[in-house]
């Protein structure tokens, strides 16, 4: 399998705080990688490296290399960041649809990136909503406000919104932590389906979720990547004592 994302010796500082300490990781294309670890371990900061969301925070310093499709995304000019973000979609912890109609939520990414052709936009919106397994539920109310949807539907709408601009990578920051078990199940099924088209990285606090949906798992602790391996290996036979302690619930 081709390597999609490669981090080598990545350090991240927030001011004086050393949040990531020399991370190395290679993520193959069209796989799901789960990032686990206790709160504050750096996994969300790590996730936000890949679409340069950390740039928005004052006082962030990043060293090392982050390659996506063999391009170092921290050596590209500022003007290329928007293009990078087209390639790397993101879904957030809390469903956060815009105060717009269902249709306009999904069309937003297309419009901000300069697409004007109504027919193309309409087709892309439908395609994204189908991919997010939401089309059947919303096809008759595309003009309704996105806030009329349930929390689980809103989150799938946010996934559709991220997918509409056809990224090749999807970053998910605890995408199901604010949802009930049934909605969570739907999101997990969706992640499994989407694997054939996207490289997915998901941050989760839920061990079962990590073991259910992911091919690879990385365990973070205090800014270090303790262990990164196939999910099966991590959950059945981890190399490190700390990993075993965490996944068996002995700390964290």
């Amino acid at each position: 399998m081709r390597t999609k994302i490669e981090a080598s010796n990545v350090h991240l500082h927030y001011g004086d705080f050393h949040a990531l300490k020399g991370i190395n990781m290679q993520i193959p294309e069209r796989t799901v990688t789960a990032l686990i670890g206790p709160s504050g371990c750096g996994k969300s900061s790590y996730l936000r490296l890949f679409n340069r969301m950390n740039d928005l925070i004052d006082g962030v310093r990043i060293d090392g290399k982050v390659l996506i499709d063999n391009t170092d995304i921290y050596s590209i000019p500022q003007s290329e960041v928007d293009r990078l973000r087209r390639k790397v979609g993101m879904v957030f912890q809390k469903p956060n649809p815009f105060p717009k109609t269902i249709f306009e939520n999904v069309a937003y990414g297309l419009r901000v990136n300069g697409l004007k052709d109504k027919k193309v936009i309409g087709e892309q919106v439908e395609k994204a909503l189908r991919q997010a397994a939401l089309w059947e539920e919303v096809k008759d109310k595309l003009k309704k406000s996105a806030f009329e949807l349930s929390g689980g539907q809103q989150q799938r709408l946010c996934i559709a919104r991220a997918m509409a601009i056809e990224p090749s990578i999807l970053l998910m920051d605890e995408p199901a932590s604010a949802l009930d078990p049934i909605s969570t199940g739907k999101i997990e099924e969706l992640i499994y389906e989407l694997k054939s088209n996207f490289t997915i990285i998901i941050v989760t606090h839920n061990m079962q979720q990590a073991s259910r949906v992911s091919d690879y798992t990385g365990f973070f602790l205090l800014g270090e990547l303790i262990e990164f391996d196939e999910t099966k290996k991590i959950f059945r036979n981890p190399e490190k004592q700390q990993t075993e302690n965490y996944i068996t619930g002995r700390f964290g």
């Binding site: 969301m53 973000r85 087209r86 956060n96 815009f98 937003y108 901000v112 946010c158 919104r161 601009i165």
Partner: peptide, 13 residues
């Protein structure tokens, strides 16, 4: 801020 971030994440200025 999550609204702003969602918009930036889609490549919006």
């Amino acid at each position: 801020d999550t609204f702003r971030h969602a918009s930036y994440a889609l490549g919006a200025s």
